[in-house]
Amino acid sequence: MAKVAIVELNRNCANTVEEIVKMERKIFPKHESLASFFHDELRKKNSGLLYIHVNGVIAGYVMYSWPSSLYGSITKLAVKEQWRGQGHGEALLKAGIEKCRTRKVSRIMLHVDPLRTPAVNLYKKHGFQIDTLVEGYYSSDRDAYRMYLDFDSS
């Protein structure tokens, strides 16, 4: 039985940050990677990062922010290839949503490549709706869906 834990990043843990930066570089094309800005992103008071440990190995992470009191954002969600399809991305997404919810935002937004069908389906499963297609979001020939999840105001 795998030992799985979602952990909030301790910003002083340089080894963990470096491991996540390596994962970022491997998973995302250079022009989409936050690797060179990762430390700057983590210094912001309105952002956070959760990562998932599976048997002592970092298998994935979710980065989130709340740029204003109106909305939060899932800025990154990544799972190492060998750990995909096992529910780790879903667990990270749910944890990221909950972190944004605790900030009392009324909406969470994210961007996703329409060709990443498993990711689009995961977001839809958790209530995200497609707002619009943003042409050239990732590069001149790669678009993105802007998706959102609204919370009840009650």
Score class of each variant (00 low, 15 high):
G72S: 02
G96C: 08
A95C: 05
K99R: 15
G85Q: 10
L149R: 03
H53Y: 08
Y64G: 01
R116I: 11
P29F: 05
H111K: 13
K104M: 14
L110C: 04
S139K: 09
Q129E: 15
S106D: 13
E18F: 07
C13G: 05
R146E: 08
V120G: 10
V134R: 13
S69V: 10
Q86Y: 14
Y61E: 02
R103G: 03
R11D: 03
V7R: 15
V120Y: 09
E98I: 10
G72C: 00
L9G: 00
L77G: 04
R43K: 14
L70M: 13
V4T: 12
K44I: 10
R116N: 15
G127Q: 00
L70F: 13
L9S: 01
V57L: 09
L77K: 12
N121C: 05
T117D: 12
A14S: 14
K94N: 13
G87I: 04
A14F: 09
Q82N: 13
D143Q: 06
G136T: 06
M63Y: 11
S68A: 10
S36N: 12
S73D: 13
D131Q: 10
G56M: 06
P29M: 06
H31L: 08
I52Q: 03
K3L: 08
L77R: 12
K30R: 12
V112T: 14
A14H: 12
S73H: 14
I108N: 02
F38K: 00
L122P: 13
Q86G: 05
I130L: 09
Q82K: 14
S33P: 08
P67S: 02
K45L: 09
L70V: 10
V17N: 03
R103I: 00
T16E: 12
G85K: 13
S140M: 11
E90H: 01
Y71D: 13
K22C: 09
S33H: 06
I6W: 04
H39A: 08
K26H: 11
S153H: 13
S139A: 15
P114R: 01
Y51D: 07
K125C: 00
L70P: 01
H126R: 05
Y71K: 11
M1G: 07
K94M: 12
S47P: 07
Y51W: 10
Y148T: 04
A78R: 02
L122E: 05
Y123M: 01
E135L: 07
A5Q: 15
G89Y: 10
L50C: 05
